[in-house]
Amino acid sequence: MIEVKDVYFTYPNGTEALKGVSLQITNGEFVAIMGQNGAGKTTLVKHFNGLLKPTMGKVLVDEVDTRHVSVATLSRKVGFVFQNPDHQLFSETVEDEISFALKNFGFDEKKIRERVDWALNILDLTRYRKTSPFMLSGGERKRLALASVLAWDPKILILDEPTIGQDRNQKERLRQFILQMNHQGKTVVIVTHDIEFVAECEPRVVLMANGKIVADGAARNVLTDPDLISRSWLILPEITNVLLNLNDLGFPTNVMDVYEARDLIIERIGWARK
């Protein structure tokens, strides 16, 4: 469980990135933190594994104050996948890349081999085991970065902008994967401004603007609120937008699922034919 209690954070250069954020993420939740660039999303999640410590207020991870433990200790519990895989890949082979963190955390030889095999398999990288990470494509590098974190099986998984640079297919696979992880009981926090992706995942949405939380609730309520979305400098999901424009024909405004929209439209067409 992550508890953020009235946290303020100011960067050394004087930028106030967080201005009084309070938030609670319980075990097994799936949360999307959204907002435009510079809203404070990444700054907030960097508090979850202690990379940043609050200037004021406090952050508790499983009741432990992040100010009193090292990043390494917290990371064992909170896996953080950075936005750009090129900021972390350095090993000679894909295999070594995945075992890096496991060695840091002091897993034994046998366990390391087991975990590496598992991670390679689950992210479909087994055939690249002996390849250099630098020879992989962008999407594969991103998967490798994810594998290298998942390998130590953290309880909480944080993904910073996981959809950037991914094509539609890869996004769909990522979505399946995240949902699967979540169903297996992992707490998943994604930081993104990809509203379509979030609309498809339907997690709890925490909307941020100017270092503050402006909305917190089910995706269906937050993402379909035109006023809220435009105030946060985002754009409504396409489906919501279409139905919103058909509102004067009696369509509801809080739909963001393709299949639901289809059913509504079919129902309406049938009704018109009668």
């Binding site: 960097k46 594994n49 990379l51 090292s70 990043v71 390494a72 990371s75 064992r76 896996g79 953080f80 950075f82 750009n84 900021h87 972390q88 890096f100 963190a101 840091n104 955390f105 290298s148 974190v149 130590w152």
Partner: peptide, 13 residues
């Protein structure tokens, strides 16, 4: 700095 953060998040001390 970002790289340092990314590697610390992977348990590098």
């Amino acid at each position: 700095q970002t790289i340092i953060d990314a590697q610390r998040a992977r348990g590098l001390e």
